[in-house]
């Protein structure tokens, strides 16, 4: 049942590195991540691999297996021939830290540029009402496990370092779409996506959709509809006239709520504890 597989694993750091050959045992039902763990335990104790859940739910173990961006925990060894040489390399678009681990902080920086969910005014917690059909569109995008494979494979940034500044990448353009389609979000997301997220850079080659381990239809369901909404809005002359003033007002409002919640941490922010209920334990 078991056999010895031939692996080439990229070892190195920011200074450089190369593929190293390994021969390693494979047992029935294993995935590439199992093999990386066996290498660590038996031949390469210091080999850096980022992983967490080993069940395709956390999106930590992204790598390029035989050149294809994959989650190592969801890549079964049975998909390769026993004689096939399998290469494992770090995802290419982000700087290498060590071995298979890359610095993905680009994504966290982009996440901070997307304005947060803007709740409707005057709707108390517990009073939110939404139809299942309406939440499903955004729910599809919230299946994202942030493996960043779409960010890695998107050719806008994969070979163009200079585009990382103006372009958020498919994951975060999808976040704009998710908020735009949220039934109760009150902020206008079209302009954000176009001007801050760089939606125009996307030319819908669907590379992101192809690599998504959650099978989210990123291009068809998020990016294309968002592009259509942006176009609709752009050609509306009334929108064009008012948009600069509107944007400034929005920004000022955002600043104000920030200051408020720091100074008034009372019941208004919904997180205060009911003082009457806090008492010493054991009093009866």
């Amino acid at each position: 049942m078991g056999y010895q597989a031939k692996f080439k694993v990229w070892r190195g750091d920011a200074e450089g590195g190369d593929f190293v050959d390994y021969r390693v045992d494979v047992e029935e039902g294993e995935v590439v991540l199992d093999i990386m763990h066996r290498l660590q335990a038996t031949q390469a104790g210091d080999m850096a691999v980022r992983w967490n859940c080993k069940a395709g739910k956390c999106g930590s173990c992204s790598a390029e297996v035989n050149g294809r961006p994959r989650l190592m925990c969801m890549t079964r060894m049975s998909t390769f021939g026993e004689d096939e040489e399998i290469s494992v390399a770090p995802i290419r678009t982000f700087p290498v830290i060590r071995d298979l681990v890359t610095d993905v902080d680009f994504n966290y920086a982009k996440a901070r540029e997307v304005p947060a969910f803007a709740p409707p005014e005057g709707v108390a917690p517990g009073e939110y009402r939404m139809a299942q059909a309406d939440v499903e569109r955004s729910q599809e995008f919230r299946k994202c496990i942030e493996c960043f494979l779409c960010q890695n494979v998107c050719h806008v940034v994969r070979d163009h370092e200079e585009n990382k500044e103006p372009f958020s990448g498919p994951r975060f353009l999808m976040r704009y779409a998710e908020l735009d389609m949220h039934p109760l979000d009150v902020r206008n997301r079209k302009e954000d996506a176009q001007e801050d997220g760089g939606l125009g850079y996307c030319n819908i080659t669907k590379c992101c959709t192809e690599v998504c381990p959650e099978h989210i239809k990123i291009t068809d369901n998020a990016l294309i509809p968002m592009k259509e909404r942006v176009v609709d809005r752009k050609y509306d002359p009334l929108v064009w006239l008012g948009k600069k003033i509107f944007k400034r007002q929005e920004l000022e409002q955002r600043g104000a709520t920030g200051a408020q919640s720091l100074e008034n941490p009372g019941p208004d922010n919904g997180s205060a504890l009911d003082a009457d209920r806090i008492g010493p334990v054991g009093t009866s």
Binding site: A116, F117, P119, P125, G126, Y128, R129, M130, A131, Q132, V135, S138, Q139, R142, L179, H182, D185, G270, S271
Partner: peptide
């Protein structure tokens, strides 16, 4: 309920709860 004010999208009942 507070999570909904942070943007969470739970599955819904027929009456939207």
């Amino acid at each position: 309920w507070e999570l909904e004010t942070y943007g969470a999208l739970f599955d819904r009942t027929p009456d939207g709860k």
